[in-house]
């Protein structure tokens, strides 16, 4: 589904070049459950943003369903992120002045064209499935971390994406809550066939996925 070919991403701190990701070649197939494992600062997040089309590579090519992504406009890229990709972050990244329900509905406002579902109903169904429906009118800072991450997952799922990209989704949670989130991720992949890419620095977490991609100092390596 998504292919990276010799992809590099560099940041510049003044004159100094920081190679966050270097020469990455990989493929993520539809319905895969895969993790990206690496230490802090190894370039995992950067790699994930490249896969999610949130970032353009400095060099190399990214293909989405065999289409060269570098040719796409901001409008087209945004549309793909809206329809096809769902992001989940370590720090939840909910908007605090909106309620749970409003946060979950946020992606529906950015769809160009007609929604093929009733947003409100779908949001409530998903919230129900994730056990947080009764919190729908709460503001994010009034619910627990585990609940916030569930809301973030519902927001990622609302547009019925093909792929979920989760950047250390358990990083801010205790191990029990984190494990529940991972169960939900696994369920998404198993029961609904959503492609899930899980970014983590914990071997134990990575071990739960069917395939691991190791990254070290920006380079993809065979062994961790």
């Amino acid at each position: 589904m998504i292919k990276l070919q010799n992809v590099c991403k560099s940041y510049y701190l003044g004159e100094e070049e920081v190679k966050a990701v270097c020469n990455a070649t990989l493929e993520i197939k539809a319905k895969e459950y895969v993790s990206i494992l690496g230490t802090s600062g190894s370039g995992k997040s950067t790699l994930m943003y490249l896969i999610g089309l949130l970032e353009q590579p400095t060099s190399g090519k990214i293909f989405l369903d065999d289409q060269d992504v570098s040719k796409l406009s901001d409008e087209e890229l945004s549309h793909i992120r809206n329809r096809t990709v769902g992001f989940v972050f370590q720090s939840f990244n909910l908007i605090n002045r909106f309620t749970v329900l409003e946060n979950v509905l946020l992606p529906t406002h950015y769809l160009k064209g007609q929604l093929d579902f009733d947003p409100r109903k779908r949001a409530e169904d998903l919230l129900e499935k994730f056990g947080i429906l009764e919190r729908k009118h709460f503001f994010p800072n009034k619910i627990s971390g585990g609940q916030q991450q569930r809301v973030a997952m519902v927001r990622a799922l609302i547009m019925n994406p093909k792929i979920i990209l989760a950047d250390e989704p358990t990083g801010n949670l205790d191990s029990k809550t984190g494990s529940e989130i991972l169960d939900l991720m696994e369920g998404l992949n198993k029961d609904f066939g959503v492609t899930v890419v899980l970014v983590t620095h914990e071997k134990a977490v990575a071990r739960r996925t069917r395939r691991q991609i190791y990254i070290k100092d920006g380079l993809i390596v065979d062994k961790y």
């Binding site: 901001d74 409008e75 945004s78 549309h79 992120r81 329809r83 946020l106 950015y110 769809l111």
Partner: peptide
């Protein structure tokens, strides 16, 4: 917030 909105599909124009 701008970053979050961009991630979920907001264009520059949005």
């Amino acid at each position: 917030e701008v970053g979050i909105r961009r991630a979920i599909g907001a264009t520059e124009k949005n």
